[in-house]
Nucleic acid binder design. Sequence first.
DNA 1: TAAGAAACCATAGCGCTGTTATGTATCGTG
DNA 2: CACGATACATAACAGCGCTATGGTTTCTTA
Lengths: 210, 210
Amino acid sequence: MARTKNPAARSLLIDRAAQMLRAREPVTLRSLVAGTGVSTMAVYTYFGGMDGLWKAVRQEGFARLAARLATVTTPEDPVRELACLGSAYLSNALDNPDLYRVMFDATFDLEDPGASDESLRHLVRAAERARSAGRFRDDVDPLELATQSWIIGHGLASLVATGPLPRHMLAQAVPLLTGLFVGAGDEPVRCRRSVELGWRRPYPDDGRGT
Amino acid sequence: MARTKNPAARSLLIDRAAQMLRAREPVTLRSLVAGTGVSTMAVYTYFGGMDGLWKAVRQEGFARLAARLATVTTPEDPVRELACLGSAYLSNALDNPDLYRVMFDATFDLEDPGASDESLRHLVRAAERARSAGRFRDDVDPLELATQSWIIGHGLASLVATGPLPRHMLAQAVPLLTGLFVGAGDEPVRCRRSVELGWRRPYPDDGRGT
DNA sequence: TAAGAAACCATAGCGCTGTTATGTATCGTG
DNA sequence: CACGATACATAACAGCGCTATGGTTTCTTA
């Protein structure tokens, strides 16, 4: 019994915010709605304010990351797949450094506490496959190993994308991941080869996350 | 032939900013100088604006981190010392999560490009000692290994201090660092013992960095 | 010692921000 | 068809970082 919202406006604003973030333009309430035809009040109708907008943008960032990780499929070698996932993760972070920063900028709390869970699940499943394939010991907890991979990936992404580390330091991912997987039980020489393969040729289909 | 600045005011403002950051109070130009007796113009005389203040605060954060790492000394076991340094690093980050975030928030560029170098040097020296002691292979580059340790430490600190990972995930540092050091050539069982020792009893003197 | 100049500092105001109050237009519903 | 709830447009408000303008302080120098 009322005027209905235009759901297109909501995603339009999120997309525009992500786009301005990528263009390194300051995202303010007025600059966000300028040229879109919608007024400043729309931000309050759909998000309740700028904080709500940032929450939505962050969730969108996690959604795009999950979509990007979903394009990775290398069924024959699960350790290589893990390296592929790490490479895709870093590639996504470096393509959208400002969006990546917003995703982990917890000045305000998350609207969806499990926003990052779906991305982590990709890693967990790959770790499970690696254990089932006999590459990891049976006592390896896939969730723990996935978390450890995430820690390495996030540390590298954060220090390189917006931090003091130069870009060529991305290569440190290979020894780091190799050390992690060997510690989980993989045979060193074979592991190194799998990780290097997965790292150099990151993912079969480049899903060019915006 | 002029009036000299009061150097006390500069460090007073930096300290107050760090204190407000820790208390999670919003640090604005006016709220910063309120109650200190100095006027808003002081921020411009000493820092050239709020950006300059944040740069100074960030440098202060790195200085405190370096001072904290300097208290770590375990000459007999360099691998344990590396774990000690990692533990001190994380302890510092978790004690001042907001200051830690500002340190790595590169919205504006750094005033001192080598601000983080001194902290890294502690790690490099420990890695050199570990190599000299025969714990690491001769072909291990201490700078690379220090950087890799930093990546792990920062990833963990960032995800736990202000991110989505619960605090008990700090324990992941032990397998991560062990994997890294074993990959550098250390003997697995002995390495694990050294890392656990260094991690549990982080540093002899707790220099309680503010 | 006294004049002069350079720098610090206090005040007021500018343009911008996010937010909210108020009135209008518009759509779903009875 | 008419009611009422809700989206939308406009304008105003407090607060933000910043800057222009004098006044005051302090060091230098003749």
